[in-house]
Structures are given as C-alpha cells and as structure tokens.
Amino acid sequence: MPPLSPSFPPSPATRDSVVAALRAAGCVFAEDEAELILATAGTPDELAVLVERRVAGLPLELVVGWAQFRGLRIAVEPGVFVPRRRTEFLVEQALAQVPGASVVVDLCCGSGAVGAALASSLGPVELHAADLDPAAVRCARRNVDGRVHQGDLFTALPRGLRGRIDILAANVPYVPTDEVSLLPAEARDHEPLTALDGGSDGLDVLRRVAAGAPDWLAPGGCVLVETSERQAAAALEAFTASGLTSRLAVSEELYATVVVGVLD
C-alpha cells in the first residue's frame, strides 16, 4: 500500500488538535489515527466532520472508508462488518493448504476482504463471494474481482460450483447470543447483528457450513472457519462429524483460531 499524504497541508497546530481530540475520546492510538484522518480529509471542513465522527465512536475504518487487510485497501461502508487483522491468519492457512487453488469461495463475505486477499496472492482464479446482507453484497462488489452473490450460505452459490471448490473460506459469526451485548461498542453499535451473533453457543452457522461443505469441495479442497479458543474443540468436532479431515491452526500473535477441514 502506498504511503498516505494529507490532501491539504495541515499545520502542526491542526495536527496536534486532532490528536488531542482523539485522545480525549479514548482512542488508544490517537497519533496513528490522526495521520489516517488527516490523509483522508480533502478540506478543513471535511477534517472537522471526520474527527467528529470518530470522537462520537464510529469505527476508524468507517470514518476513513477503508480498512487495510493483507496489504490491500478494502472499501468498507456503514452497516458492513469491518475485516479484522486476525482474519489474515485464515487467509495464510488457506494459501498454505491449497497453494494452487483455482476456484475460491468467500462465504459470509462481508466486505469481501478474504476473497480479495486470496485472489491477490493466488493470481487468476475463479472467485465467488456470497453474503446474506444486501449491504455487504454491495460493498463486496467494490472489492472483489469476481462474482458476488446474495443469499443464505450455499443457497447463494451457482450449482455449477458443486464439487469444484478448492478453497472455501467462511468468516462466520461466532459470538454467542448472550455475549453480543458484551462486545466493544464499535462492533455492537455499528456492525450488523447477523455478522456477530452465532446463536446460543456461537456455532450455529459454523455447523451449517461444516455440514454442507463436503458437497461443494473438490477432492483435496479445504474449508476454513475462524472461531474462538473456547469454542475450538466443539468446532473441530463439527468438522470431523461432517467427514472432513480436520485440524486446528492457532496464532498466538494474532489471537486467531481457525478450523481447517480437508476433503480427502
């Protein structure tokens, strides 16, 4: 990603005032956030609006209109799940498992960040993305160089993909319903509930993906789903029960846990 430079030359006093406003609002990385906001604003009036939005609690990515994900600038919009850095680990595991993948599906795609990152690393691929939420579908179409479908999990996909998918990445919701209210306000107040709430134990959608994946994967293809450390054992059991050769991959650095299932 090329370095950002301000759209207008802010004075040191302006820069200091932005940092002070963000710090007062509780932004831990106020200096870094200020640089991004200053680089996004085209005029002093626009700068004031962006700072006001961030101070009011809007996630930084929605303030500036994009999120960085594996070196890509992913467009994000209000009402769409913001890609997390920890999900880069899921992409890494997919690439390691099937480095020569030619058919890739990003299920529960949100902004389409996972699919875009996989395609960026793999080169020319047949890429499909799908989400239930119309807002996510519109956003993903800005980021994905492939076909984006709207619908509920596998019902959204073209039938011609059955038995052909090399990488099926599904960043499913996995927060238990009773714990959604405990999430940080940035997620709880600004991201769609369907992208967060995974049902009573957080694994409702994961189990559906695990059950359906074998019919859609090519031989040697894999399905990957992010989950939490606490849910890992039950998630792994769901993958194994569907007939997949399954394993857990964990990144302590990114606090990421991914279930990988392979169709032998």
Score class of each variant (00 low, 15 high):
210 A>C: 15
101 A>M: 12
84 R>W: 07
196 L>V: 06
1 M>P: 03
123 G>Q: 10
93 Q>R: 15
137 V>H: 03
135 A>N: 10
204 D>F: 04
182 L>K: 14
235 A>P: 12
256 A>P: 09
209 V>M: 01
178 D>C: 08
88 E>D: 11
79 G>F: 09
243 G>M: 06
125 V>F: 11
160 G>Y: 02
76 V>A: 07
240 T>R: 13
151 G>T: 04
58 L>N: 05
18 V>S: 10
128 H>M: 05
192 P>F: 12
218 A>M: 13
186 E>A: 14
179 E>R: 15
179 E>C: 02
182 L>H: 11
224 L>M: 10
254 L>M: 13
108 C>A: 03
137 V>S: 06
130 A>V: 10
197 D>E: 06
128 H>T: 03
217 L>K: 05
52 E>Y: 02
5 S>R: 15
246 S>Q: 07
217 L>Y: 08
258 V>K: 13
192 P>T: 08
56 A>K: 09
35 E>T: 07
246 S>P: 04
24 A>M: 05
67 A>D: 06
167 I>W: 08
189 D>E: 14
197 D>S: 11
26 G>H: 06
42 G>V: 02
159 R>Y: 01
203 L>N: 09
155 T>D: 15
214 P>M: 07
167 I>T: 02
19 V>Y: 00
150 Q>E: 15
20 A>V: 00
61 E>G: 03
127 L>I: 09
50 L>A: 04
16 D>A: 15
198 G>P: 15
195 A>I: 11
183 L>H: 07
183 L>M: 13
226 E>C: 10
229 E>Q: 13
78 P>C: 01
114 V>C: 09
161 L>G: 07
93 Q>I: 00
87 T>L: 12
200 S>T: 15
130 A>I: 11
79 G>H: 08
231 Q>T: 04
246 S>R: 08
71 G>L: 09
205 V>D: 01
184 P>V: 06
165 I>P: 00
78 P>W: 12
200 S>Y: 00
124 P>A: 14
14 T>G: 00
107 L>V: 08
62 L>D: 12
29 F>R: 13
244 L>E: 11
182 L>P: 00
12 P>I: 04
225 V>K: 01
175 V>P: 03
39 A>Q: 04
75 A>Y: 00
207 R>W: 00
32 D>F: 00
112 G>T: 08
2 P>I: 02
118 L>V: 05
124 P>R: 14
97 Q>N: 04
118 L>I: 08
152 D>H: 15
258 V>M: 07
248 L>T: 04
9 P>T: 05
88 E>V: 09
42 G>K: 05
76 V>P: 03
28 V>T: 13
